[in-house]
Design a protein around this nucleic acid. Structure first.
Lengths: 229, 229
DNA sequence: CGGTTGTTTGAGGACGTTCAAGTACTGTGG
DNA sequence: CCACAGTACTTGAACGTCCTCAAACAACCG
């Protein structure tokens, strides 16, 4: 448990979510919030639990993980600095459909769930911002579903790299270990490796940590990639 | 183009979205909205287009369809009476990621996009309701992603039928043609047919239009199904 | 009654997984 | 600085799942 630092405030005020909120409301919220720096591997909450807090990443990287009963698991999305995660469970006061695990040491803001719901009811700006934030997340998820249903493994990887790079030529810093990227893309690490190999014939270069897009147009053509795909 | 009928009003006032809205705001909104009864096959909007209207189903059934560039397509979700669809594109004023096509004759309410955005900014109750509606949709999508990544075809079908039935024993009315259900579940009609055949050994009965759950517990065990899975 | 459309069944093949081995990278202690 | 362990990544072979293609069957509708 710790207090909010000036650098934390900067992130909050800059975040999409709290930018238009009434400053006094933000003050009150901050007074009840908890900030913690937590080690990698920490599970913020687990699938099936009731939400006690709304979490927001002030730094670090977090993985949202879905579990099956046979202890298989899969990463649904990565989140990083400034991201708010799994607001829906908190808003609806329903059990989490996903678990959240820190992928590296992260600074986490935790807002009591009931407090957040009350603030949403009282502050119109916050309710609006939440609707917009959820809209963005909705689009992320829809993209992923289309990806899973309409693309094969190498094309999924290519599309993922193209969105990471913003369409530019040049080296790409992979945000995570390949093992985790494979899970996010819905394939095994072995398949990911083979997918990289396949893409070497289609405008991508590199193996290991160093990856670079040589020919974005060729890669886009191969992946059937466009803005709304 | 037509006016809103009393039966339409009943649906609107009962819907999650407009239940808590200021009545005068709803009046103004209704004054600018268009209601149309449209034949099956009608495309309300296509992937990539800019949203001009927010659509709400007053009756009928609608499929949300994702397209790949090689004219493959896949159904992401079905919607029916009372559902609001693809609010995120309207809220963010960004191109649609999906197309909407009527699966049967449907009565559609269309609210001008700019009007809806303005109303959200002015009416706190509406903004709140939208956040909650988006939260519910978010959970639908997350469930589907977990389904696609963690379950094989027969288990996906079983889980789908279990949610349709609410866990009860007895006959189930399939909401759509099998071809469409197959697309929603991310498989071919042939695979769907084989998945039904597989489930006949695991607590499900029937072929063709008549399907019934014989032994929910057995089916749940086979599908690794639970509330948060 | 034939035509059309939707569903089932079969055979073969592509894609991706699993299992197993080999290679490259990273950090630690000698 | 190097040897070494531990981990990540790659590669290969065998297998399983699901798709494709093709045909048979069923249901619906004129």
């Amino acid at each position: 448990m710790a207090t909010i630092r000036p650098t934390d405030w900067a992130i909050l005020q800059k975040s999409e979510l709290f930018r238009d909120i009434d400053p006094r409301a933000l003050d009150r919220l901050a007074a009840r919030a908890i900030v913690q720096t937590l080690p990698p591997g920490t599970v913020l909450f687990a699938q099936g639990e009731r939400p006690d807090f709304l979490h927001l990443a002030l730094s670090g990287r977090i993985g949202l993980i879905g579990h099956a009963e046979d202890d298989q698991e899969s990463i649904v999305e990565f989140f990083a600095t400034g991201d708010l995660f799994i607001a829906p469970a908190v808003i609806l006061d329903l059990p989490y459909l996903l678990s959240a695990r820190l992928l590296e040491e992260s600074r986490i803001l935790a807002i009591p769930a009931e407090e957040f719901r009350r603030l949403m009811r009282e502050d119109h700006g916050l309710a609006l911002a939440v609707a917009q934030e959820l809209s963005r997340h909705w689009r992320l998820l829809v993209r992923q579903i289309k990806d899973l249903k309409l693309r094969r493994a190498p094309q999924r990887l290519g599309a993922y790299l193209l969105t990471l790079s913003g369409g530019k030529t040049g080296p790409i810093a992979l945000p995570e270990e390949r093992r985790l990227i494979a899970q996010r893309l819905g394939m095994t690490p072995e398949s990911l490796s083979r997918a990289f190999a396949t893409l070497r014939d289609h405008g991508l270069d590199g193996r290991g940590q160093e990856v670079a897009i040589i020919d974005p147009a060729q890669l886009q053509a191969f992946c059937l990639y466009d803005e709304t795909t």
